[in-house]
Amino acid sequence: MSANPQFPGFLRTSIGRKWVVAVSGLFLIGFVIIHMAGNLQMFAATPDVINRYAYFLKTNPLMLWGFRLALLTAVAAHIWAALSLARENRAAKPVNYAVAGRKSRLHVTLASVTMVISGTVILGFVIFHLLHFTAQVVDRSYQEMETVLDGKAVHDVHRMVVAGFSKPLISAFYILAMGLLFFHLRHGAASVFQTIGIRDRTLSRVIESGSWALAAILFLGFSSIPVAVLLGVWKL
């Protein structure tokens, strides 16, 4: 067999769409890890480090936009597949038990039953975040912040971030969103392995705790910046 007539059907089947959720999710996990690594340059000895990084990204538009396009595709695929599965799941269980079974026995965890909610809030957060720090339309003054790097005038990302997180409400929203990301990944990251078929009894413990650790690291890494700003580590 060379041509594969089944392939278009792949996206219609339950397992096919689960693969889409898992693979796009894996890509997004990769992205947030890189994103966090980039962010942590805030803690470098001088603001130049993160500003140079931002300048590097901006001056390579092909790479930047290529990456953004891939991200957009992944996000769209992730949302589409997850929502279509969730819709089917609700339809497949029209009536629930009058008495719910013990959560401990049925493995009902808060993280696993709130994936759509945590995902939706995270999506809202991402949109806000893009408007806030990427398009910089929430506070247009960010567009004016400049600094001199290697003799060139460049955007002062470091100052923008400090300014952005100086507002406690915004910081709180960021931290809340990262908390939800923690929940989302705790279940989601472990699920990737099940969906792509590399979880088994011996690996499951590693996968479960690994997912927990990854989710926790991402939460701490991302939240550390607004927390540091609120604690006054950097002054405007």
């Binding site: 059907g9 339950s14 689960k18 799941n89 279940h187």
Partner: peptide
């Protein structure tokens, strides 16, 4: 078997293992 499973109106796995 997966196609027949989907056609029968079962939901999908969300990896909770109940």
């Amino acid at each position: 078997m997966v196609e027949a499973m989907d056609a029968a109106g079962f939901g999908n796995c969300s990896n909770q293992y109940a």
